[in-house]
Design a binder for these strands. Structure first.
Length: 778
RNA sequence: GCCCGGGUGGCGGAAUGGCAGACGCGACAGACUUAAGAUCUGUUAUCCCUUGGGAUGUGCGGGUUCAAGUCCCGCCCUGGGCACCA
């Protein structure tokens, strides 16, 4: 018989909601704890079992913290601007506002059905004007600080559809919609100067507790390199190896390099302009990725043009090569085939000589000036799309760019008939004269609104701040509340967000801290990452493959508690795992057994009514309970949820067996039953609350204290150790814990079936590991 | 190509340098049942002789160590990211 999970879960969810049990208090005197998960994009597909995995994980941590006496804030919201909803609107004509509302409603219902202890009173939605009003306001702060500027960039352009494409829509250099070859088109775009914060973003990593691989990814992404900028007859190159200056045999320029452009325009004369032009045109049509991935390096020698290495007077030939990227360093490199593998490969193809002179170890002899470069590039902040926050700027022919006055925010996203970008590549907003025509805020003359919108990353760059004060109409969040709750104590999200979202949101927060608007510079104290849940067979879940697992069906059939418990049990939290449709059966059976035991033992035996015999409890059971408390407590902190669940199963099996061995009417010490339930409740809170009620104790389980263990009680009197001969296991024996090597040797001497292995042998060496093994080398 | 992960039974996985395979799924056998299901009990890495034992075994090739899934070196395969997907 299955326990009535639907009834139980609905009952407790309604109870928690009514009691507002999980709302964080701004005025609480308890110590605060801020747990954060990456909020979902409310797609039409509904909640993914991957969301359930990471949201359950931090729900477990949030619930444990409440047992430990913290004022926990665990908020949720929706990151609702983005391409999929816009594409859906283009396809179906359904307004993104309408689709988002519908999808959000579904997500909210699904999240509620899983019993997460979110503080629903702080819910945010990035496409709500009351939210994006402040996203726009924050953009203006960047603008006013000189960190938002316009620059020309290259975008992906489909000449057939006549629209700009996201990289994702242009994979393999082909338009996702029509299959045409994607071209590059120059476009003037708003940029955010994240590079100005490169050093602060690097430095900040030193004081936060992020997983090591996350720090490494961010450090490498920022890519700080110290080196020298060296001049070769007017061509400036950047190198991290100035000590190899005596071994330079060629120079390479990126196709984008200004000197190359001058050569093509005829401003600088070279011998083979046509050949170079053909190469450059081809290179410019490729993406950086394609250029880097090319198996064989390509390039062209520039004829009748060379430079001098002023260090040794060598004459150096110059090539254009697309493995040199225009936006890194100076867009030009020196080639040292003797000391660099890529240069060696290039030299091999073009028969460039290799020169192996001694390295110049004395820094004073190095030419050029010290220079620091970064791989990090400024953030392209414009999209010529509909479904995003309008950038709050006005262009006046007389006054230039003018920010929209703060009192006029939000700049509302207007309704349009056609969501497609225009044929000239502009956002559909550009066709709405009622939106575009405005007065210049400065001269009151005729002016136009900016029609670009912000990228999806904008709203998610500061949502953790808005949660703290989501209804504030006067500021993005009240300073005192920010001070009370920041930093986020524990942030979990996907590895796939580590270099973009995580870096962007750190950048915004550090900027706001510099402006005196938030209390700490680093927003996240600790950051961890979950692995993906894949479809059966390890392939990604997707609608087109038809392997999407719907949480609704699982909640209905097995219950939210069984789903939560299974997702914690499925495998190591940080690693990807395939979904096993049979797996949830195991945790469901486990919960059934728990419910059965508590009902059988406590139903209609209200505490106090009937004298319950005190049953002396076996010391091994007490030891196991203490061990379980220790293991579950530690495993949760280390996110080893799978082994925590396993330990709960082991502990429960022993409890079940011990209770079953008693005479009818007798009950084991209640401490076993209460502690077990508290340990279970972060994972499967509904069933734990229900069973707690059966115990007939006063007070809710939710307000209990997390159980503690005693190391003394864990320690067992006897331990089993292994006897090895030449590293092969020959037998096992029970010894008193803490026995010495001499004592163990005596015990072996007394055990004929062990001692026989040693008869007639010469012992060369004995290795003794206390409590583990004794190894005889004979 | 560059940066960051991962590779252990039929499957998901466990294992402070110290008994490889905990826990769960599946499978097989038994109990209960008129039967099925549910539930409970037992077995379950592979190979070989079959009381009991022996050999092999953690992607591949080397190395360190009394002892390696774990540490070191070199490969192979695979997942995530690469700046306009979120």
């Amino acid at each position: 018989m299955n326990y009535p999970h639907t009834k139980i879960e609905k009952k407790w969810q309604a109870f928690w909601k009514k009691k507002r049990l999980y709302e964080a208090k701004n005025t609480s005197t308890k110590k605060k704890y801020y747990t954060l998960v990456e909020f979902p994009y409310p797609s039409g597909d509904g909640l993914h079992v991957g969301h359930v995995r990471s949201y359950t994980a931090l729900d477990v941590i949030s619930r444990k913290r409440r047992f430990e006496g913290y004022n926990v804030i665990y908020p949720i919201g929706y990151d609702s601007f983005g391409l999929p909803t816009e594409n859906y609107a283009i396809k179906t004509g359904i307004a993104p506002q309408v689709a988002t509302k519908k999808n959000t409603k579904t997500f909210r219902r699904q999240l509620e059905s899983l019993g997460f202890s979110f503080d629903w009173s702080r819910e945010v939605d990035t496409s709500d004007p009351q939210y994006y009003r402040w996203t726009q306001w924050l953009f203006l702060q960047f603008y006013k600080a000189g960190l938002a500027y316009k620059a020309k960039t290259l975008i992906n352009w489909c000449p057939s559809c006549r629209i700009g494409l996201a990289n994702e829509e242009a994979t393999g250099g082909v338009c996702e919609r029509c299959g045409s070859k994607v071209e590059k088109k120059e476009k003037s775009q708003w940029m955010l100067k994240i590079t100005a914060y490169a050093d602060k973003l690097l430095k900040g990593l030193e004081k936060v507790d992020f997983l090591p691989e996350i720090k490494t990814q961010q450090r490498n992404w920022i890519g700080r390199s110290e080196g020298r900028e060296i001049n070769f007859s007017g061509i400036s190159i950047f190198t991290t190896r100035p000590d190899t200056i005596d071994c330079v045999t060629f120079l390479c320029l990126a196709p984008e390099h200004s000197l190359v452009q001058k050569m093509l325009s005829g401003e600088v004369r070279i011998g083979n302009k046509d050949v170079v032009k053909k190469y450059v045109d081809e290179a410019m049509s490729k993406t950086d990725r394609v250029r880097e991935e090319a198996k064989e390096k390509t390039g062209v020698l520039i004829e009748d043009y060379s430079v001098i290495n002023s260090f040794n007077g060598d004459s150096i030939p110059i090539y254009v090569a697309d493995y040199v990227l225009g936006h890194y360093g100076t867009g030009a490199v020196m080639g040292v085939p003797a000391h660099d593998l890529r240069d060696q490969a290039f030299a091999g193809i073009f028969n460039i000589p290799v020169k192996d002179a001694p390295l110049i170890t004395d820094e004073k002899q190095w030419p050029g000036k010290k220079k620091v470069t970064y791989k990090l590039r400024d953030w392209v902040f414009s999209r010529q799309r509909y479904w995003g926050e309008p950038i709050p700027m006005i262009i006046c022919n007389a006054c230039g760019f003018q920010p929209v006055p703060e009192r006029d925010l939000p700049v509302l996203l207007p309704k349009v008939k056609d969501y497609r970008p225009r044929e000239d590549g502009e956002s559909p907003l550009a066709s709405l004269s009622s939106f575009v025509s405005v007065k210049c805020p400065k001269c009151k003359g005729k002016a136009q609104r900016e029609t670009d919108t912000m990228p999806n990353w904008a709203g998610s760059s500061w949502y953790f701040l808005r949660y703290l004060d989501s209804k504030n109409k006067k500021a993005f969040a009240d300073k005192r509340i920010i001070k009370k709750f920041l930093p986020v104590d524990w942030y979990n999200g996907g590895m796939e967000h580590v270099t973009l979202h995580l870096l962007y949101s750190r950048f915004w927060n550090i900027f706001l801290h510099d402006r005196g608007l938030v209390s700490v510079s680093e927003p996240y104290k600790k950051r961890t990452a979950h692995g993906l849940i894949l479809g059966e067979g390890g392939i990604k879940m997707s609608k087109s493959k038809g392997n999407v697992v719907n949480p609704d069906t699982l909640v209905k059939t097995f219950g939210a508690d069984a789903l939560r418990l299974y997702e914690m049990f499925i495998g190591p939290f940080s690693e990807s795992t395939p979904w096993d449709p049979q797996g949830i059966v195991g945790t469901h059976r486990f919960l059934n057994r728990i419910h059965r035991l508590y009902v059988a033992t406590f139903k209609n035996k209200k505490g106090g009514k009937k004298a319950v015999k005190k049953i002396p409890v076996d010391s091994t059971l007490i030891s196991l309970l203490n061990k379980t408390i220790k293991k579950v407590s530690e495993d949760i902190e280390e996110m080893r949820f799978n082994t925590a669940v396993s330990e709960l199963m082991i502990c429960f099996r022993a409890l079940e067996d011990a209770q079953a061995s008693l005479k009818a009417g007798s009950v084991l010490s209640k401490e076993l039953f209460t502690s077990f339930l508290i340990l279970l409740s972060p994972f499967s809170p509904h069933l734990a609350a229900e069973c707690w009620e059966l115990l007939g104790k006063k007070g809710l389980i939710e307000v209990q204290k997390w159980p503690t263990y005693s190391q003394k009680l864990i320690k067992e009197e006897q331990v089993e150790i292994v006897m090895q001969i030449n590293n092969k296991v020959k037998g096992k024996l029970m010894i008193p814990s803490g026995a010495t090597q001499a004592e163990v040797e005596i015990l072996i001497g007394l055990a004929p079936n062990l001692e026989r292995h040693l008869l007639g042998t010469t012992i060369k060496k004995i290795i003794f590991v206390p409590g583990r093994l004794i190894n005889y080398i004979i």
